[in-house]
Amino acid sequence: MQISSLKGISASLAVISATVLLLSGCASPVASADPTTLQTAQHSGPTASQTAQHSGQTAKPTSTVPVADAIIVDASSLRVHATDGSSLGDYAYSGSPKDAINELTTLLGDPVVASDAPEKCGGGWTTYQWPALELTEYTDKTMWPNGGYSVFSRVSSAPIALTTPNGARIGSDWASYFAGVSGHPHDSGDYEGHWDRVLDTAQTADPSLGVIVRATNGAIDSIVAPSSLNADC
């Protein structure tokens, strides 16, 4: 009787063991994952995140440096404006021309420098000449106790626009320009062709001084400041 019971128990254990093994074998393929699938999933996560972060950084606005657009010959100073309308420099004629010379050199290239000894109608100065513009620094304090400088624009092309507050430009049509400043002091005459002059913009302290625009035979050919229509030299 005992032997029969033991045999029955053994048989039962054998069935249970077989069942466990069978269940374990069926469950293994389901529980295990393909290593390639795991690696791909793990790799794709950070890449998407990094792409999103990179896109966010790329979308940030970048600052731009203003670009010079025009040199304006005004009554009391030489000014440089940027394409966005902002001022890049304002150099008073009554002060040292050092900064103005540096700015013009940046915009127009290296100038030709020359000096003149004092004489009746000037001298005692140093000139800085570019193809389209000449700056005269008054260096002789006996002749020019207040120092300062003046500018003179002549017929020539330039890499940047040279203009006055009222829009005079070298080579432009005199009649079109003069229509806007005909109420300003002006004169005209005939010498080596017909010439016209006008006080484009006057200084506040001395209204007789300012920007003088001249045309010969109907085309603007010079802009000088500060100057006067009454100058005899």
Results as ranks from 00 to 15, higher is better:
Gly147Asp: 15
Pro46Cys: 08
Arg169Phe: 03
Ser157Trp: 00
Asp74Pro: 03
Thr36Gly: 05
Ala158Glu: 02
Thr201Asn: 07
Gln42Val: 00
Leu162Lys: 09
Ser17Cys: 10
Asp90Ile: 09
Thr105Asp: 02
Tyr149Arg: 00
Val15Trp: 03
Arg154Glu: 07
Pro145Tyr: 12
Ser63Pro: 00
Thr105Gln: 08
Ala82Arg: 08
Glu134Met: 13
Leu104Phe: 10
Ala70Arg: 10
Ala158His: 03
Ser28His: 07
Ala117Cys: 02
Ser115Ala: 15
Leu135Cys: 12
Asp74Asn: 11
Val198Ser: 07
Asn230Arg: 01
Gln53His: 14
Ser5Phe: 13
Gly180Ile: 00
Ser172Phe: 07
Ala31Phe: 15
His81Ile: 13
Ile223Gly: 08
Ser28Leu: 10
Lys7Val: 12
Thr64Leu: 09
Val15Ala: 06
His184Lys: 06
Val15Tyr: 11
Ser5Trp: 13
Gln42Cys: 01
His54Ile: 14
Ala231Asp: 15
Ser228Tyr: 09
Trp130Ser: 08
Pro165Met: 13
Ala161Tyr: 00
Ile16Arg: 11
Gln50Tyr: 15
Thr40Glu: 14
Gln53Ile: 15
Ala231Ser: 11
His194Asp: 10
Ala92Leu: 12
Gln2Met: 05
Ser28Gln: 12
Ile3Lys: 04
Leu13Gln: 14
Leu199Lys: 04
Arg214Cys: 08
Pro29Thr: 04
Gly89Phe: 13
Tyr177Ser: 08
Gly8Gln: 14
Asp69Asn: 07
Thr216Met: 05
Lys7Phe: 05
Gly122Ile: 06
Ile3Thr: 12
Asn166Gln: 09
Ala202Met: 09
Trp130Val: 07
Gln50Glu: 14
Asp200Val: 09
Pro185Gly: 11
Thr216Trp: 04
Asp173Ser: 07
Arg197His: 10
Pro159Met: 10
Thr164Phe: 01
Thr40Trp: 04
Ser94Gln: 06
Ala215Cys: 15
Leu21Asn: 10
Val67Trp: 01
Ala179Gly: 09
Thr37Lys: 11
Thr47Val: 15
Val73Gln: 01
Ala231Lys: 08
Ser87Leu: 12
Val113Phe: 15
Asp190Trp: 05
Ala161Ile: 06
Pro66Gly: 09
Tyr149Asp: 08
His81Gln: 11
Ala100Pro: 06
Val112His: 14
Ile16Tyr: 06
Val20Glu: 07
Arg197Cys: 11
Gly180Glu: 03
Leu21Glu: 04
Ala92Asp: 13
Ser176Leu: 03
Ser228Ala: 09
His194Ser: 14
Pro207Trp: 00
Ser182Met: 01
Ala48Gln: 12
Ile220Ser: 06
Pro226Gln: 11
Leu22Cys: 03
Trp174Leu: 10
Ser150His: 09
Ser176Asn: 07
Pro145Lys: 13
His54Met: 14
Pro29Ala: 09
Thr58Glu: 15
Val113Lys: 05
Cys233Trp: 15
Asp84Pro: 02
Ser94Asn: 10
Leu23Arg: 02
Glu119Thr: 02
Lys98Cys: 00
Ser49Pro: 02
Asp221Ser: 05
Leu107Asp: 00
Pro29Asp: 05
Thr136Met: 08
Ala179Glu: 12
Pro145Asn: 15
